[in-house]
Structures are given as structure tokens and as C-alpha cells.
Design a protein around this nucleic acid. Structure first.
Length: 457
DNA sequence: TGTCCACTGGAAGGGAGGGCTT
DNA sequence: AAGCCCTCCCTTCCAGTGGACA
């Protein structure tokens, strides 16, 4: 009997990778090529936190994959590191200097902290902990944390260290959450920087009340300071903001322009050095990945994904070198995987609507309207003995599918025939049907024939 | 030029589900 | 247990719309 494990062959087989994680977009390298200007600008703003002064609020614009999040996260890491270093220096020095000498010193930050603590405990662990966390950097991605309540609890919970004191995900009145947040920031002291990534998603869903409150948080804080960094890829985002929020939030603005192919190449080269074994990459691979990503508005995330997936495909085939062929394959794979994931995670009602559209298109209706899709959807529901949603709700689901890029819609008027939306599939009908057919809900009606519907044209 | 169609899409609110406070 | 609050998903209501047609 062999005691080998199914993973053994894969685990110990030769790989082109030295460290795959380096190619993830979430990995933050020590250096970010071609973002030196933005790094310096942001550091110049946030250095105030190290002096216990309030840094300006910052607004960061730039398309997907232009390094906004990476820069902000890198600066955060550096800021916290520096704060710890300074506090350590303070503790070391305080062994040698007297209180008077320290009070006469010029280090405002530590003098402030010192004023709030009993100096007799200077060497205690508690004080040391307080000192090392007096700069707080809280990152929130508003794509998921997209309501006023959630943002407030998220910030508060990032500061509250005791698990039992953490705020619940629902249940409390919002003003109560705000008060507890103030208390936790005040108790923490120092400077709290709140980063709201994809801030446009937050405002789109919940309005700008939350931003109004957060930009005025310093008025309510007694013992601490806070500032906001908003990140968005929507250049017109601030047009929808309340003028007061707009001026307070946009004290400083940073623009991240897209990378060009040469810059993307530098980024990939830097990561590849760490990510791959020697000679594992054909020299044509990085230029190709860069060129393909540059075509799509200079998206570094796309370039990194392409490189990583190409190498994974090479690995799986047991090749010891990544060549151009794998990049071409990777392009296809990434596209298919993205679509499959989006469809798979759709709620059941959206899947039914999509199936309605798909079946009509398959039956040859090339001028599909909202009304026709709704009729087919109702038939599908009847077949499944499910209650159907209203047409109003279905128009929203159709809009969502449109936003996801699964279908394309266009509002048209047929004169007396009325005004409606023309709908068509944007992804291949056959493969989508296969994906939908795999779900338990739809497997029995996947071949339903929609009633013949007359188009308005 | 006014009418009419089949919607679109904003606004308001209901209610289920989850969770807190008293 | 009761009362309250939040989120999410949904319904109901309704003003507004573009363009063919009479």
C-alpha cells in the first residue's frame, strides 16, 4: 500500500513560480514604479498625523488598476511603521531624559501623548501599547460596506480592540453608532485616517449624509483628530455631492493617470523578479501582457492577472517555461471565468429574467422589449410554481443585468407602440445556457419554449 | 399639433429578518 | 417579551417621455 496523497504529485511537481502571491493585485510591494509623485504628495499630506496635527482630507481619482489602492495602502503601512518607530524612540529616550527636559522638547506628538498619561507608568506595557497605536489607518471598501450604518460600525470596530465591545451589524440607532464611534476615536487619541475606497458606490446607494457627518467629525472629537481619504474611479462623482461636502472632502486632490504599456512592463518586471524562478518566463511574455492590458485603459490589475493566469496554465500543463501561447489562453480563460462567476452569483430572480431573455433570443426574437421579457418570465415562474415579481421590479433587474454587462439595453420609442427598452444578450447564448442549466432552480425549465411574441417593429 | 402607447424610473412605504435595549 | 432600529427586497403609485399617428 502506498501512503501517497492526491496532492503529492501537484505539491512537489516543478513549478515556474517562486512566489505566486506577489502577482496578486492585493500584494503591496515595497516600491510602486511610476507612482513616486503620488506617493510623495500623499506622504506630504499625511505627515501631519505624525506631528499630531490634522491632515487634510484627500480625494483620489483614477481608473481601475492605476494603483490608487496600492499607494494608499503602502502609505498606510509606512505611516504606522514610522509612528511605531517614533514611539519606540520616545520610550528609549525617556529612559535618559527628565520630565522637564522632555516638556521643553519640540516633539509635539509625544508631548501631547505624554500629557494624557501618567508618566509614572512610562515603562509599563499599557502605555507602550497606547504609544504604538496613536496613528490609526482604517481602510474600507465601500463596494461591500455601502450604508451609513455599516461604515460607522466598520470604523468603530476597527478601533475597538475588545471583542465584547464591538458594535453589532444591525440593531442600534445610527446616531448611537455615531456617538460610540466618536467615543472610540477619542479614547484612542492621536490621529485616525479613514480611507473610503470606491466612495462613489457608497454615495450612490446611501446618499452623502455619511460624508457630511464624517467630514465634520473633528468638531465633535475632544481628544483626537480624524481625516478622510476618498477614492473613486468616477471622475464626475463629485458633481452629485452636496457643495459643502465637496469643498471639505476635496481639500487636496490626487489624480492617477492610466499606465502606458512601457510603465506596465516595468511593473510586471519588478513583480516577476520575485514571483518566478530563473528563466521561467519567455522574454515575449511580459511585453505581450503589458500591451494587452494597456489596450484596456492601462489597467495594472489586468496585466498582473494575465501574467499570473498564463503562468498557472503553463504550470498545469507541466511546462517549465511560460510562453506567448499561454498568454493567449489566459485572455480567454479570464473572460470565461469572470462571466461564469457573475452568472453563478446572480440571485434566483435575476437568473430567471436572464433565462427569459436568453430563451427569447434563442427563439429568434431580435427585438426583445421589457414587456416580452416580463411575459416570458411570468411563464417561467408559472412553470416553477413560483410567485412572480412585478414588472417594475423586473425593470430594475434588467437594469442590473445591463450594468453587469451580461445584456445590453437601449431605451427606444416606437411612437404609438410606446417607449420601452430593447434588450439583447452581450455574452454567448449557448455557453450562458449551459451555465444556467447547472443550477438546481433552472435545470427543469432550461429548454422551455417561450410563446411566439410579435415584435413591435 | 395633440393624442396615445408602453413603458421608464423616482419616491414612498411595507414587511420580513436580524439584532439591540430595557 | 416588547419595543425599537437597520437592511434588504419588494410593491404601489405616478409623473414623465419619445415619437408615430390622426
Amino acid at each position: 500500500m502506498s501512503n501517497s496523497n492526491v496532492f503529492d504529485d501537484i505539491l512537489y511537481s516543478k513549478s515556474v513560480f517562486n512566489n505566486r502571491e506577489v502577482l496578486r493585485f492585493t500584494y503591496i510591494p515595497h516600491q510602486l514604479p511610476h507612482r513616486e509623485l503620488q506617493i510623495n504628495q500623499l506622504a506630504a499630506i499625511l505627515v501631519a498625523a505624525l506631528k499630531n496635527e490634522t491632515p487634510s482630507n484627500v480625494f483620489i481619482y483614477g481608473k481601475t488598476g492605476t494603483g490608487k489602492t496600492a499607494v494608499v495602502r503602502l502609505i498606510g503601512k509606512e505611516l504606522e511603521k514610522k509612528a511605531k518607530e517614533l514611539s519606540k524612540k520616545f520610550l528609549d529616550r525617556s529612559l535618559e531624559i527628565t520630565i522637564e527636559q522632555f516638556e521643553n522638547g519640540h516633539n509635539k506628538l509625544w508631548r501631547n501623548i505624554y500629557n494624557n498619561f501618567d508618566f509614572s507608568e512610562i515603562y509599563g506595557q499599557d502605555l507602550k501599547n497606547e504609544l504604538t497605536k496613536s496613528v490609526n489607518y482604517i481602510y474600507i471598501n465601500c463596494q461591500h460596506v455601502d450604508t451609513q450604518y455599516r461604515v460607522l460600525t466598520h470604523i468603530a470596530n476597527a478601533i475597538i480592540s475588545d471583542w465584547d465591545d464591538r458594535l453589532p451589524l444591525t440593531g442600534l440607532p445610527t446616531d448611537e453608532v455615531y456617538n460610540r464611534l466618536l467615543a472610540s476615536i477619542d479614547e484612542f487619541g492621536g490621529v485616525t485616517t479613514i480611507i473610503l475606497d470606491e466612495i462613489d458606490k457608497l454615495v450612490e446607494k446611501s446618499g452623502d449624509d455619511i460624508l457630511y457627518n464624517l467630514t465634520r467629525i473633528n468638531n465633535d472629537l475632544k481628544n483626537a483628530k480624524a481625516n478622510i481619504i476618498g477614492i473613486t474611479n468616477n471622475l464626475k462623482f463629485t458633481d452629485f455631492l452636496d457643495a459643502r461636502v465637496k469643498s471639505t472632502l476635496g481639500e487636496e486632490e490626487l489624480i492617477f493617470s492610466p499606465y502606458n504599456a512601457a510603465q506596465l512592463q516595468d511593473i510586471l518586471n519588478q513583480r516577476a523578479e520575485e514571483a518566478f524562478n530563473l528563466d521561467a518566463l519567455d522574454p515575449t511574455v511580459i511585453p505581450l501582457c503589458s500591451a494587452l492590458a494597456a489596450q484596456e485603459h492601462g489597467d495594472a490589475r489586468r496585466a498582473l492577472d494575465l501574467l499570473r493566469v498564463s503562468a498557472e496554465l503553463a504550470d498545469r500543463e507541466g511546462a517549465n517555461r511560460v510562453v506567448e501561447r499561454y498568454v493567449r489562453k489566459a485572455v480567454m480563460k479570464i473572460e470565461q471565468d469572470t462571466v461564469a462567476e457573475v452568472i453563478d452569483t446572480l440571485p434566483p430572480q435575476s437568473k430567471l429574467v436572464l433565462l427569459g431573455i436568453l430563451l427569447n433570443e434563442e427563439a429568434g426574437s431580435n427585438k426583445l422589449t421589457t414587456g416580452m421579457v416580463f411575459d416570458t418570465y411570468k411563464e417561467l415562474c408559472k412553470n416553477l410554481k413560483m410567485d412572480s415579481l412585478t414588472q417594475r421590479r423586473i425593470t430594475d433587474l434588467i437594469s442590473e443585468l445591463d450594468m453587469l454587462g451580461i445584456i445590453g439595453t437601449r431605451v427606444v420609442s416606437f411612437g404609438r407602440g410606446g417607449r420601452t427598452r430593447l434588450i439583447q444578450m452581450c455574452i454567448p447564448v449557448h455557453s450562458t445556457k449551459k451555465l444556467l442549466g447547472k443550477t438546481d432552480l433552472l435545470k427543469d425549465i432550461i429548454n422551455f419554449k417561450p410563446p411566439v411574441q410579435s415584435t413591435l417593429l
